[in-house]
Amino acid sequence: MKKPLGKKHLVLSFLGGALFFSGISFAADATTVTPNTEALKFYVDGEQKTTSAQYNNQGSMVPESFRYSGTTYVPIRHVSDLLGNKMYWEPQSATISVNSPVVEIKNSKGESIGTAVLTQDQNNVNIKVNVKNLPAGKHGIHVHQSAITNNDFATAGSHLNPEGHEHGRLNPKGQHTGDLPNLEVAADGTANTTMVLPNASLEKGNEHTLLGASIIIHAAPDDEMTDPTGNSGDRIAGGNIPQ
């Protein structure tokens, strides 16, 4: 007797099928087909999955359709809702996350150095950071208010701070919603830890939502007191939180 397919299998099947057929529809409309397609990144419950589905419409239109009303957006969002699975899309890294948003962390050269997986826990958000190739020691890490554009970390703006507090987990006038404990990087350049961000949300429309914001890692430790950044220095890595 065959084992029935679970929700994860159904979601992945529908996602792959939607991408495949949307790719065919776009190719049919184009006068030429460009061979340098790029595979989308899939994560389910924070775990990366492989897929043969690819997008290609001169490099941008199929990813854009996730955010608006193209042929890919409709079946993926709709099927995810029907199966009770939340789906998140991040266009800069072409990443689809099912159930838990996954942030692809890149360094200043645009090289991927790891991920951060976000999960809701009552009024807190847990952020599981797994990175490599960073300088050893403590580094400030924060959620910033805007998404990073073209790997320019300055475009992330200031810390996520909807209530207008000062910076610092030790500051009596703080803290920002986006203030996290320092990230401790081992001698081999890796860090694998889970941080808790109090009073944060993964719900769209919530004042404290992290969706559409970004995570930035700094060169120096955060003193957790000095406004506005804790003297944490240059921005050396970061990634966008899908929405």
Rank of each mutant, 00 (worst) to 15 (best):
H9K: 15
I127H: 14
F66V: 11
A186Q: 11
G114S: 05
D152N: 15
A147E: 14
E207A: 15
A213T: 11
S60L: 04
H78L: 03
D45E: 14
L15W: 08
S108P: 11
A28W: 12
P221K: 11
N206L: 00
E203N: 15
F66S: 13
T71L: 08
G239S: 10
K3W: 04
V79W: 09
K2I: 02
V103R: 09
P221W: 00
V125Q: 12
N56I: 01
T71Q: 14
Y68G: 13
Q175N: 07
S25W: 01
N123V: 04
L10H: 15
N130H: 09
L211P: 09
H165L: 00
Q120N: 08
I236Q: 04
I241H: 07
E38H: 09
K41Q: 08
P63T: 02
H218L: 03
A147Y: 07
E47H: 13
A187S: 12
H139W: 07
I217D: 05
P135D: 09
H144Y: 05
K41R: 09
I141V: 11
T115F: 06
G212I: 02
H142G: 15
T149Q: 11
G205A: 04
G168R: 03
P4F: 03
L19N: 15
G46M: 04
P135K: 07
K8Q: 13
N85Q: 13
G16I: 03
D121W: 00
G164P: 14
A200F: 02
F14M: 14
T115D: 03
N126I: 01
N199W: 03
N57P: 07
F14G: 14
R77Y: 06
A200E: 03
H159F: 00
K7F: 01
P162K: 04
G6I: 03
Y73V: 10
T72G: 11
V131Y: 09
K128Q: 11
A187W: 02
P221D: 05
